[in-house]
Design a protein around this nucleic acid. Sequence first.
DNA 1: GCGATGCTGCGGCGACGGCCGAAGTCTCGC
DNA 2: GCGAGACTTCGGCCGTCGCCGCAGCATCGC
Lengths: 250, 250
Amino acid sequence: MTSTVPPAGPAMISGNALASVAALIGDVARANILLALMDGRALTAGELAWHAGVSASTTSGHLAKLADAGLLDVERQGRHRYYRLAGADVARAVEALMAAAAAGPRRHRPCGPRDEAMRLARTCYDHLAGRLGTALTDALVAREHLVIADGLGLVTASGEEFLAGFGIDPSVLAPGRRPACRTCLDWSERRPHLAGRLGSALRHRCLELGWIAPVPHSRAVAITAPGRRGFAAEFGILDGHLAVAAPARG
Amino acid sequence: MTSTVPPAGPAMISGNALASVAALIGDVARANILLALMDGRALTAGELAWHAGVSASTTSGHLAKLADAGLLDVERQGRHRYYRLAGADVARAVEALMAAAAAGPRRHRPCGPRDEAMRLARTCYDHLAGRLGTALTDALVAREHLVIADGLGLVTASGEEFLAGFGIDPSVLAPGRRPACRTCLDWSERRPHLAGRLGSALRHRCLELGWIAPVPHSRAVAITAPGRRGFAAEFGILDGHLAVAAPARG
DNA sequence: GCGATGCTGCGGCGACGGCCGAAGTCTCGC
DNA sequence: GCGAGACTTCGGCCGTCGCCGCAGCATCGC
């Protein structure tokens, strides 16, 4: 049994599955396509070609492979084809990879000033991430509207009240006593932020209030002037909390 | 701005980081190496070569790359070199990829009888997964020892009591009121199972009691005869709950 | 000391896969 | 209808990377 029969380890089947999906993400053009879709919107093949930085025909091939593997969903609309992430699973895998990548090589992390806006605030699939995302989460925890247990959370009674007052539909929180509150590891902050239906609702409400605004060709979101006032008034998030080396502590 | 300047989309930096780590996992030999290490143990280069199904020299190259990227840690011991996953981040990324892979291509999932043992019960980094893992989680939830909110959980007061009675060190649960209870998406069951420090402690206790036993060259674990009795008596998990098409429902 | 064992580095081979441009299909707007 | 635009398919080129065997270093056991 310990002999010279190398051609197959025990877990070969899963190994192939794992490798094939990872290899799919492991191409720079495709990785950029997935990142461009991480905000949950659907983009056309042409837009994705621009994001990928390769020709339309090459992009088309990439998109076919991604859709074929079930990572992307396609929707035809006139002469456009809209591609979007196939689901939260895919987004989660991408974020997990980013986290593993950030954890890894100490060198080779230039952290360009380029993505400072991303680190400040961005969308992650359908919720908020970056310093704003974690600060919001921290604020809810500090006021005991949310209980985070080792990275995961539950909305308290006072939290339900507060969120309702903030304009979030209570039905988001309580379909049968199961508050739709997940957390997601923030790859830039290395701490959890709010995801799930609540995270999605929070982002939606902030957009609705005009507190944040999408940045055209990026996952980043900008915090507007009313937003600064609002986050301070409603959540106690001051500019200092969003400054570079000051993770909101309490 | 919308013009002919394709050579770089906005998120190029992160795209490279994401792609490089994914490409690393995206090779069958390396994927098998990572899977072999998913139980959290450290294996020698030779053992990993066997798992990878390639020659020792090829494996050496793969291991160097993985360690270089920070996915693996090395430890020299005499003339052996022991490799282990660099951290839970890496394990989480691998599981997330497996989940995305399982979600994807409807076809091409032969689900060989080969890994039926894995689906029944296996270790996932340091905790239990598979039908046993989800059944344990379900059992704790059903008895209100654990509250799962949209996939995430908190141990209740009765849960602390119960777990202490089961022989789990209470300090695992309460370092400052933050029960170390995460969940992890089970790639075979597509539902959450218990992870984090509590998940780890549960697995450890089950091993200690002789309820489960590691299967030599696999992440799978076997459920022993005392284990079957124990899981039934303590958790109400009957054989039926572990049978193929019967996810423990209550 | 010596040989055996475990692991790594190097050179060369071969194949997989990304890339592009040109041609083909479909849809829209006039 | 007819041209323009969006997207895909095809063929061919070329670089990258995984693979192996052999040689070179360490370490262990006698």
